[in-house]
Amino acid sequence: MTGKDVPGLEEAQSVIPAGTKINVTFLGNEDLDMRVAAAKAVKDMGFVPVPHISARRLASRAQLEEFLGRLQEVGATEHVFVVGGDPAEPEGPYGSSFDVIHTGLLLDYGVREVSIAGYPEGHPDIASDVLWKHLEDKSAALSEQGLDAVILTQFAFDTDPVLAWIDQVRQRGIASQIRIGTPGPAGIKRLLGFARRFGIGANAMIVKKYGFSLTNLMGTAGPDTFVTDLSALLAEDPASGPVKLHFYTFGGLKATSDWANSFIAARS
């Protein structure tokens, strides 16, 4: 959710299980008060806030400390997601998420678990070997600080690159929980727009496998096939380690939650 999505969270509150992790984004068009208020709302409604810390959007160490301090005041620092962020040039001293982790400040403000980004299909602006080095360096730094790590991935439409990437993560000795980014039900044009923006594979074969057609962009699509196939394939591979899902709520918090509840009910 964004800082503006508190009304949407209130609408979805009754259909989201208590204790669910809910990420709160760090957008350039939202301010400190909005981000903290959203994290507090998540906590007050019985969920687990995971505020984003966007390294490149931080103008100074003092701003980072102010953000962490305000989050700690509302009980929202146990879980955070540290990400590089969108700006091409850093607005302050932190050029990457590793730079934030390396400060050692997270422990000072009660952080226990840090989510870091994973890219099964690569990143449009970062070379593959650089991504792997960053992942290894961040994992090592968090381990040295005694912090739990979760790898939260960009969303995907196709199980093949996801499974190949998980295999590479484990071969590199990284045993952290992985949460695979999964698009919640949304309009097809909207989903494809996000895919193009983030460099996600969305060719005709993949989207047909996912369950929608490039010739009909007016409908909606959900991740039923993707989740079912991923679950079955992971069950065949015990070496994949702990893997869960992270939903990108492109169609809204309630629509995603309703879909999840219906999917679970159908399987049981």
Results as ranks from 00 to 15, higher is better:
9 L>D: 05
9 L>E: 04
10 E>M: 09
10 E>V: 03
11 E>M: 02
11 E>Q: 15
11 E>A: 05
13 Q>F: 07
13 Q>E: 15
13 Q>W: 06
15 V>T: 05
15 V>F: 06
16 I>M: 02
17 P>F: 03
18 A>V: 04
19 G>D: 10
20 T>E: 09
20 T>N: 11
20 T>F: 06
20 T>L: 04
21 K>A: 11
21 K>N: 12
21 K>D: 11
22 I>K: 03
23 N>T: 08
23 N>P: 10
24 V>D: 00
25 T>H: 02
25 T>V: 15
26 F>A: 02
26 F>W: 11
27 L>C: 07
27 L>D: 08
27 L>Y: 01
28 G>S: 10
28 G>C: 07
28 G>K: 05
30 E>G: 09
30 E>P: 00
31 D>L: 07
31 D>F: 03
32 L>K: 02
33 D>P: 07
33 D>K: 09
35 R>H: 09
37 A>G: 12
37 A>L: 04
38 A>N: 15
38 A>I: 01
38 A>Y: 14
39 A>E: 00
39 A>I: 01
42 V>T: 01
42 V>A: 07
42 V>Y: 03
43 K>H: 08
44 D>Y: 03
45 M>G: 05
47 F>Q: 01
47 F>H: 09
47 F>M: 08
48 V>M: 03
48 V>Y: 02
49 P>E: 02
49 P>W: 08
49 P>S: 13
50 V>Q: 11
51 P>T: 05
52 H>Y: 12
52 H>P: 13
52 H>A: 15
53 I>N: 10
53 I>Q: 04
53 I>L: 13
53 I>P: 11
54 S>N: 04
54 S>R: 04
54 S>A: 13
54 S>F: 06
56 R>F: 10
57 R>N: 09
57 R>D: 15
57 R>F: 03
59 A>Y: 14
60 S>I: 11
60 S>T: 12
61 R>V: 14
62 A>F: 09
64 L>Q: 08
64 L>W: 06
64 L>D: 05
65 E>F: 02
66 E>D: 03
67 F>C: 08
67 F>M: 11
67 F>P: 03
68 L>M: 14
68 L>F: 10
68 L>D: 10
69 G>H: 11
69 G>R: 12
69 G>A: 12
70 R>M: 11
70 R>Y: 10
71 L>A: 11
71 L>Y: 14
71 L>K: 07
71 L>T: 11
71 L>N: 03
72 Q>Y: 13
73 E>C: 14
74 V>A: 02
74 V>M: 04
74 V>T: 05
74 V>W: 08
74 V>R: 05
76 A>M: 11
76 A>H: 07
76 A>T: 02
76 A>R: 14
77 T>Y: 05
77 T>H: 00
